[in-house]
Amino acid sequence: MPKPKLALYWAASCGGCEIAVLDIEEKILDVAAFFDIVFWPCAMDFKYADVEAMEDQEIDITLFNGAIRTSENEHLAKLLRRKSKILIAFGSCAHEGCIPGLSNFYDAKSTFEYVYREAPSLEEGSRGVYPQPKTAVAEGEIEIPEFWNTVKPLDQVVEVDYTIPGCPPQSFQIAAVIEAVIDILKTGKALPPQGAILGAGDKTCCDECPRVRREKKIKEFFRPHEIIPKEDECLLDQGILCLGPATRSGCGALCVKANVPCRGCYGSPPNVHDQGAKMVSALSSVIDATTPEEARKIMEKIADPLGTLYRFSLARSTFRRVQMGNGKNS
């Protein structure tokens, strides 16, 4: 049997997903032995032209990490979709926009304004010099990718077969998925249903959390630096905003075990379409207030509510982005 072909690509991402792949340790040798790696820009020298030269559906599996932020990201998403039998959104950026998606608080123009004009670290000579998609130089014209207004998860641009959530996906989960995939390809077993979430559970982070929960009654929120949390009590009970109730299980409650609240990187639990809305609901049940004034007073201590409730999922939320206030319409 010829080796199945595997591609790995990164779009708008930090590189953490690539490291998570390598973090599967010696299992990476199984990957290299079983698959023919045909494209992996982060680790091996391939060119886009190599992919363009392939037959459609020639790649068996593509692991795509990173969000869609530029014309280049979008081009590669479409190209790899065409060339792959199975396209997997790998990690939170491809799944739901993740941290790059937080730039949906702004648009291309306001982002460029800050980065190329206002940022205090700019050198005076380069202040106000904006990148141009096309520039004429002595050797001819050079092009750089265009920067879109809105960051999108992969499935808002192309059809995605499976998703592996997490920022980054935990290595033990990646290893388990790879093992299962190798088994499927070897034995011809049935694939999971299209659209399935792989490498995660189907409960919430709270279900994996060892902390003791009581009936929650929150009178005050604390930011992590304002309090030393008790080690065995639910963080939310202690007034630390923990996204556990609105987050899919799968990581093994990694952060909460380290005394840090869950930030929500595994995305929404099953049947939840808007992680922030789910958390609004969860918080409303536990805030101890019987008048709107009291409630507001407690809620005002939530720093950056949008960025906190949608830290990873803003680009996948119902509204996808902050409305930039074109008139009084919104």
Binding site: S281, S284, A289, R296, M299, P305, V322, Q323, G325
Partner: peptide, 14 residues
């Protein structure tokens, strides 16, 4: 409580 919090969120969504 829900509507109060949701209003905060809506506002920040613009």
């Amino acid at each position: 409580r829900r509507i109060e919090l949701l209003k905060m969120v809506l506002k920040r969504f613009g």
